[in-house]
Amino acid sequence: MELMNNVKIKSKNLNVYYGEKQALFDVNLDLNEKEVTALIGPSGCGKSTFIRCINRMNDVIDICKVSGNIEIDGVEINDKNLDVVSLRERVGMVFQKPNPFPKSIYDNISYGPKIHGKGETKSELDEIVENSLKKAALWEEVKDRLDEPGTGLSGGQQQRLCIARAISVNPEVILMDEPCSALDPIATAKIEELIDELKKTYTIVIVTHSMAQAVRVSQKTGFFHLGKLIEVGKTEKIFKNPDNKMTQDYITGRFG
């Protein structure tokens, strides 16, 4: 029998509005612990909006209004009294375009732990930097030039640096919004290999436009369309024999 991991993140009747426009409609989606969930769907379908709810990134948009629930480990995160900074410590994010700080490789990694009070001494910080870079499979490539600017790395390395930065504060969840769309196939393969490794420790949610990538990296896939979660299920099932016709039309390229 196949074992399913525990549910880490649970969204219940999640609705999101940007001003008058509703971006998500009653999304109910469970994301399992230490598993990769891929979210697919055409541009504007709400998949990025959904993951931005998980670390309350939508809070920074004035006109954005969220209703419904998102629970992490059974605790509601939309609670006004919840400390958003510590939420974002637990839920890291990696974006489409690598966005290292215009600082050294070392500072890129040590910045997070410092502000979260995680590395008090230099040697503690050194250890965090080394471990994070190792987990992001970047250590060997940069260990001799930690004081060089992060922006001087190649695109793929920059993205792994951003993943290392996300890992440095020891999160539980990593959100990835099209993390490979700006990368070449080799750099993409390295990130995918990394995702495989990271899922042993973290719960990962990845938004991707590449079906092949969704199949390769995820165990669960959700298909969004026009703000609605149309179908969610085991990745193999979704790509071999989906239940919903709209899902099938989308993944086979018969849309619109």
Partner: peptide, 10 residues
């Protein structure tokens, strides 16, 4: 060329 999925793959 197409990396067929779902019904196309079958």
């Amino acid at each position: 060329k197409r990396a067929p999925m779902a019904i196309d793959l079958r």
